[in-house]
Every structure is written in structure tokens, then in C-alpha cells.
Design a binder for these strands. Structure first.
Lengths: 109, 109
DNA sequence: TATTTGAGTAACTTAAAGGTTACACATTAT
DNA sequence: ATAATGTGTAACCTTTAAGTTACTCAAATA
């Protein structure tokens, strides 16, 4: 992969990386733990992890020969900021969340 | 370009497309208007516009031989939803979500 | 100590996004 | 009618992200 230098938008453009983030939102996992969830080779996952780390989406804690991955806020900041800008067009973000929840949870009052 | 079928995340991964959206947030512009803001050729811009249209980020209104582009909410929805999910980890919006849910659902514990 | 296990790196290949130029085709203007 | 303008499409080229296999190395285990 040669360690491409990607920005936050490119980082989340990859479905595998989004899946990694999703998995880490439920448990902190090692590289091998994560790799077990994918069809691709471990080195491929390893590289995705490196990208996620260098772009601030995850942090890694070494524990012996294992490396535990966990979500990190920093990487999401640029994305939140960008979306917030456009939210001006569609009303407040809170409003969106509200609509989203009304849809998802089918709230009846 | 052969009209790749991109998802919302891939759509905004391209800096030129983000720039187009940014320009449209200030004015509704024609294809040529937009192209004037870029170094790349007009056909290249034209293809970006098509991608933005087919993925619901913009809508286009024909006016004679001109095509006016304007922002469209739909395309942003998937992104907002995805980010909202991860916002739960950083608490900033979790508070809002909680309040919202307590309000809407009148959760009793 | 020898072996297995977790993980990173190097070298290579492939698929596809993103650009270009050339062209076609309406619509508008002269 | 002819020319100019706004735009889309086709064919092509280039770059690069993303995958692979093979290898190395350090830490844990037998």
C-alpha cells in the first residue's frame, strides 16, 4: 500500500475502514481480532489500521506483542466540522437527529 | 470517467466535489460557472456534477441550454447519520441525544 | 532453547477514479 | 442561415489506493 497520506474524507471513503471503526465502537480489539472480521489478508487490515491511526481516528496501545485499537475523537473532528457547515442549509443538526430518531424509533406521542 | 457509481462517502472524498458543494452553498451556479472556478477542464467538472446529482447532493434545473445546480439535502443524510452514530462516543452530542430521547420517549426508569 | 504467535514491511499487481482531448448536439445570438 | 455558446459523451491515459504473497522480527509458550 505504500502508506498513502489520506485526508479524513478519504479515510472514511473506504468501507473496510468504516467497518473497523464500527467494530471498535463496540469493543477495543487487537489487529488480529479485527482481521478476523474480514475476508482480506491480515497485512491489508494492518495497513488500514495504520492509516486510521496516522489520521487520528484510532489510537493504539501496545500490550506485549499485541496491539489494542480504540476509537479516537480527533479524526472525526474535520468531518463534523464540514457537515456542520452544510447543516446550515437543512436546519440544525439537532433537528436532523430528531428526524432521524423519529424515523428510526418510530416514536408515537 | 465512465460514471462510477459511488456512495456518499466516496463522493465527498474528492476535494473538487467538496469545493463544488461549497460554491453552491453560496450561489446556485451553472455548469460553466462552476467550471470557471477550477483548473481542470469543463468535461471533468461536468462529470463531477453528474456524480453529485446522481448521489443526491445537488439537483439540476435546466434553463434553456444552461443547467443550474443547487444543493440538495438527501445526499448528506447518510453522512449525518454515520457521524451521529460515532458522536455517541464523544459525548458532545450524546447529551443532546439523551435529552431528545428523554423528551420524545418520556423514558421512565 | 526451539517453536509458535502477533504484527509490520517490502515488492508487486490490479482495478478504478479522475483527468484529458475530440466530438456531437441543442439553444441562443448575429 | 450561420456562428457562437453551454453542455454531455466517448475514447483514452495516468495515477494511485488497495489488495496480494513472502519475509522479518519480537514476544509468548512449550
Amino acid at each position: 500500500m505504500a502508506e498513502p497520506r489520506l485526508d479524513a474524507f478519504q479515510v472514511i471513503a473506504d468501507a473496510s475502514r468504516r467497518q473497523i471503526l464500527m467494530l471498535l465502537s463496540k469493543n477495543n480489539l487487537t489487529v488480529n481480532n479485527l482481521a478476523g472480521n474480514f475476508d482480506m489478508s491480515r497485512p491489508a487490515v494492518s495497513k488500514h489500521i495504520k492509516i486510521l491511526q496516522t489520521t487520528g481516528f484510532i489510537s493504539i496501545t501496545d500490550k506485549g506483542r499485541e496491539r489494542y485499537c480504540s476509537l479516537k475523537k480527533e479524526g472525526f473532528d474535520a468531518l463534523n466540522e464540514w457537515l456542520s457547515y452544510f447543516d446550515q442549509f437543512w436546519g440544525s443538526k439537532l433537528k436532523n437527529l430528531e428526524n432521524l430518531m423519529n424515523d428510526k424509533l418510530k416514536i408515537k406521542n
